[in-house]
Design a protein around this nucleic acid. Structure first.
Length: 251
DNA sequence: GTTATGGGTTTAGTCGTTTT
DNA sequence: AAAACGACTAAACCCATAAC
């Protein structure tokens, strides 16, 4: 998908990109190989050829920062397949807005293993930073509005440059509603222990664990968080494929 | 059910630039 | 000169969450 992307060129927006695709120029190679391109002067084409060459070089060394800066946040999804091996799925639980919104649990999943960091145990700036180190893309549900700002405010850690927020991506596919609703739409089932639990319940579970040192409440909370995070992977690949088809019209 | 919060996106409209 | 287009802006809107 990234090699079909032209909106990273300065002066090319989504409409011009569509025009290029429609005229048969569907990849960077097509563009650079064409002797001339409709609606683009030869002078500009020269500049774009250089830019695309630079993009190719950055793609081959897998430089996530390069693309993060050249694409608007709502188009970061285009790099999901490219950086799939360096993705981290992330979901946090907190004490809630009016209790200062302190992070209680940070759940991370890299596609193979799940790791939860718990406040008062192993949730530290250093542990988080090292777990996120080297990741090129973070996948969240509404993380742009919630998880990432909260984490930055509390821990000031470096986060991966690319961010695939499934909430806004799903909306582009006319899938409205929160994470649980969308999970159900895609046929994902929750375990018996966490069936029907919501974010508000996560707050309650935390307080139950804290007040009574109730380890079973914590373990339910961690299970809930784990399912949230692990399900993001399936959601992401589904949403990526649908978005790709929708945007390109699957030429 | 309503409201507040803080982050973000989308949409519609306007304006300036590029291409033919 | 006209058409097509991107950039910019502001307003509307969405989400998770909890207090009321």
């Amino acid at each position: 998908m990234i090699e079909r992307t032209f909106i990273l060129l300065d002066g090319i927006g989504d409409r011009m990109e569509r025009t290029l695709w429609d005229s048969g120029i569907t990849t960077w190679g097509d563009f650079m190989g064409a002797s001339s391109v409709p609606r683009i002067s030869s002078q500009r084409k020269l500049r774009y050829d250089k830019d695309l060459l630079k993009a190719s070089a950055n793609l081959s060394v897998r430089n996530g920062d390069f693309f993060a800066h050249r694409l608007p946040g709502n188009e970061h999804w285009r790099l999901f397949e490219t950086f799939r091996d360096d993705v981290v799925y992330l979901d946090i639980e907190t004490t809630g807005h009016f209790a200062g919104n302190a992070t209680t649990v940070v759940g991370l999943y890299d596609g193979a293993t799940f790791k939860a960091f718990v406040r008062g145990k192993d949730l530290t700036r250093e542990a988080l930073a090292s777990a996120l180190d080297g990741k090129k893309m973070v996948v969240t549900f509404f993380g742009r509005g919630f998880d990432i700002p909260v984490l930055l405010h509390e821990f000031d850690i470096p986060v991966p440059p690319l961010h695939f927020d499934l909430c806004f991506a799903a909306k582009r596919l006319n899938m409205h509603g929160g994470l649980k609703v969308i999970e159900r739409e895609l046929g994902i089932c929750r375990s018996d222990d966490t069936q029907g639990l919501s974010g508000a319940d996560a707050v309650r579970l935390w307080y139950r664990y804290k007040r009574h040192e109730d380890e079973s409440a914590l373990s339910t909370l961690l299970q809930y968080n784990k399912e949230d995070v692990v399900n993001l992977e399936y959601l992401a690949s589904k949403i990526f494929e649908s978005l790709k088809t929708k945007v390109t019209g699957s030429f």
